[in-house]
Write a protein that binds this DNA or RNA. Sequence first.
DNA 1: ATCTTCGATCTGCGATCGCAGTAAGGGTCA
DNA 2: TGACCCTTACTGCGATCGCAGATCGAAGAT
Lengths: 240, 240
Amino acid sequence: MQNSLAAGEPAQMSPLQRDSLQQQIYERLHAGLIAGAFRPGEVISTRGLATQLGVSAMPVREALTRLTAEGALELTPSRNLAVRILSRADFDEVTAIRTELEGMAAARAGAARTATDVTTIRARHADLADAAESGDIDRYLSANAAFHASIYAVARWPLLLSMIQRLWLIAGPAIRACLPDQTHLGRSMACHDTILAAFLTGDGAALRAAIIADIATAAPDIRASLTIGTTRSNDDEIQS
Amino acid sequence: MQNSLAAGEPAQMSPLQRDSLQQQIYERLHAGLIAGAFRPGEVISTRGLATQLGVSAMPVREALTRLTAEGALELTPSRNLAVRILSRADFDEVTAIRTELEGMAAARAGAARTATDVTTIRARHADLADAAESGDIDRYLSANAAFHASIYAVARWPLLLSMIQRLWLIAGPAIRACLPDQTHLGRSMACHDTILAAFLTGDGAALRAAIIADIATAAPDIRASLTIGTTRSNDDEIQS
DNA sequence: ATCTTCGATCTGCGATCGCAGTAAGGGTCA
DNA sequence: TGACCCTTACTGCGATCGCAGATCGAAGAT
């Protein structure tokens, strides 16, 4: 009844508006934090983001509240919301939980994969390799997150995926902060080839081991850069 | 300047107001969900809760938004917020992740415990045994949650503890819904004695095994009661 | 008597306004 | 010239209002 275009209109209706505003804002910030669009310690203002997005402060507030509760942001003593700065102990904790949960998701994904999954993962891996070759850090981080997330999604455990995403959310800015290590990027890509190979064979145990190796390979570099970023976090100019 | 009582008043000032309203509301709902104060499918109204708590709808909304994002509540097609009803697949996922994360926390807690921790855990276990003997289900569930949480807190990994709490939040109402099984309560208490013993010896591996056994012991009963609660969830009267 | 239909009353979501607290800039006094 | 205070412009948090959508009950028509 709704579609008055009826007869000669095969095209599907436009999505109009999928989610609530706060959900859209949350998802955008989520992706931005994982992709390293924000630096540790960077201040995020509710009203500023609201005017920038052309909406009221209300939905922005709820999105930021959620991110704060999840540990991605923190409330500074001057009543400002800022991207959380991880201590080494924090990072170790995140890494340990990541090893556990992503390992579990990988083991399950290896056993549950379908033909469609295989083509999806291949595509994501191709994107990742392409981004790595281009040297574009932002593209690489986004592609890396998409590659991993698509693997874990194969396990078809949405809660597990959500908890893993939360860990990426917390660690994302710290990962981005130690970006310029080009050698790390090469080593990481070798890990990703191993991950893809294990996924193609469907060996859950091997896939789990490959994922854990990827985490363990990247961790020392990130960890080493942490206190540096902590001490001189606010020295440079605020933002663009 | 604020305290005009000044001189002869050694007593510390009252805490006045610790957190924001939304945080207090969130914590109260959190505890209530874990302790089984809400039944699966039960509708929770923002304005209703607000008037009941004597506050505006705003902080209640943010608390409920957080709980919805965490998977404890869900938005029904009639635009109502209700306590999430777990499918068996959902419950299996929660149980699997619980096994992993609570096992990890237990292993770490066994190694990191201090003398203070021992006395705390003993006290919590005594509370739990007392509640079990009294037969008060509500007291038992609260004491059970406090017992487990205090063990995991010994690991000193706040993020891990927070993620475990989220799992309890989701599973809480389902656990409460299959309450009247008195035999289950006895079996569970046996598990708790084993847990306490393992904690006292400081054997992380044994503590981990005891925790996992506790989860595995309770899971079948809860799982079996799930679809029942799902099908006839709204048959009885709405609420008190 | 049964079916339809319309209105009152819920729901969550967003916008707008006001409040208390902090940080920084400009003015004034010693 | 230097130190101090006060004003101003932010911040997050809470309250209040209005909107669209959905449910339910009662009145009217067949």
